[in-house]
Design a protein around this nucleic acid. Structure first.
Lengths: 183, 183
DNA sequence: AACAATCAGTCAATAAGGCTGACGTAAACT
DNA sequence: AGTTTACGTCAGCCTTATTGACTGATTGTT
């Protein structure tokens, strides 16, 4: 099983609108050591974070690729194949293999687009919804716990930093995809 | 001995010393939607975050496995092979191939342990140090920027949440590895 | 001294999940 | 009519990870 992820993907247009900084860009003293700690904290937190659904996935013989596809189909019901490709940042061939399995296993359905009949709109079946929940449940639980323990101010800071870690080019596109109600 | 996939790694003793919560465990109202946003934010931020060194790595024909090894050898100079195995959570066989290359390319040196001569202590050569810097530089720069823009309170919250996302079992061990000076 | 356990390194086989290139088909745009 | 777009698929390759089995050196234990 492959544990790598990531990749370029989602490179949008640079048109960057800065998000009204709450304080006047106060320059921080940040030592390399502090930054290295941040890097490692991210590494470990993310590693444990992704280990949750991996267990569920393994039982079914799926991998992370399936998880990502299911996640974003859940999030954007009716998304087209090309749209999913953009978000995931993988090749058509890679996605296709995964998609084929999910459709075969009755977790995802395709419907031909009405406006543009070349497109295939993707949706989860009830069975797919169920798997999605069982994948995200442990992650949500982990976050819920961490957020609760850390408190609302910490959560706000957490989001703020993560948002600013995203490539400036695609940031607005990503953030509008993710949704910003929590802010 | 082989370890299983997605391994939690770094399992320490549960002896959990709670980190003096700054407020009395105030229960937060967290909707599934908010939590899903957190999940996605993590996904995108981490994806972009890891894309930085990937570019450098690709030029040299290395992968993420090399990066992780180099990172932790830099962080824990003189670490043994078994120690590195524990941190990375991969199998000996996987690490060995990577290590062999790094040694061959004169980025890492092995020295036989003095106390226990079965052990091999790993260190970066000057050349290895150089690669490590060029790998971590863009990540540090990204974090520096994000931290500066978000402000010190947000950074504190960021760390706080990440720490609490780490598996409780190994948390103390991980945090003492990472270091906590920044708090 | 003999034996067992540990640390490191290796070989062979297998698998997941990425990649590129090439091609085909249907539908839409010009 | 011709070009472009959206999707699907075949074939082949690579990297990283897996398990199992084994060797060699060293250390610890009886």
């Amino acid at each position: 099983m492959n544990r790598d992820r990531g990749g370029p993907g989602l490179h949008g247009v640079p048109g960057g609108a800065t998000q009204t900084p709450s304080r006047p860009e106060q320059l921080l003293f940040l030592t390399d050591e502090q930054l290295r700690q941040g890097i490692e904290l991210l590494f470990f937190a993310y590693r444990d974070f992704t280990s949750d659904p991996d267990a569920v996935l393994a039982e079914r013989g799926y991998g992370r690729a399936h998880h990502r596809a299911i996640h974003f189909i859940k999030r954007r019901p009716g998304i087209t194949v090309a749209g999913l490709l953009d978000i995931l940042g993988v090749t058509k061939q890679s996605l296709n293999r995964v998609l084929r399995q999910l459709i075969e296993d009755d977790l995802v359905v395709q419907t031909t687009g009405q406006a543009d009949r070349r497109q295939r709109h993707l949706n989860l079946t009830p069975k797919g919804e169920e798997l999605e929940r069982s994948l995200s449940a442990p992650q949500r639980e982990r976050l819920r716990r961490a957020f609760s323990e850390a408190g609302p101010d910490a959560v706000a800071g957490f989001r703020k930093v993560l948002e600013r870690m995203i490539d400036e080019g695609g940031r607005d596109a990503v953030l509008s995809l993710v949704g910003r109600e929590g802010r």
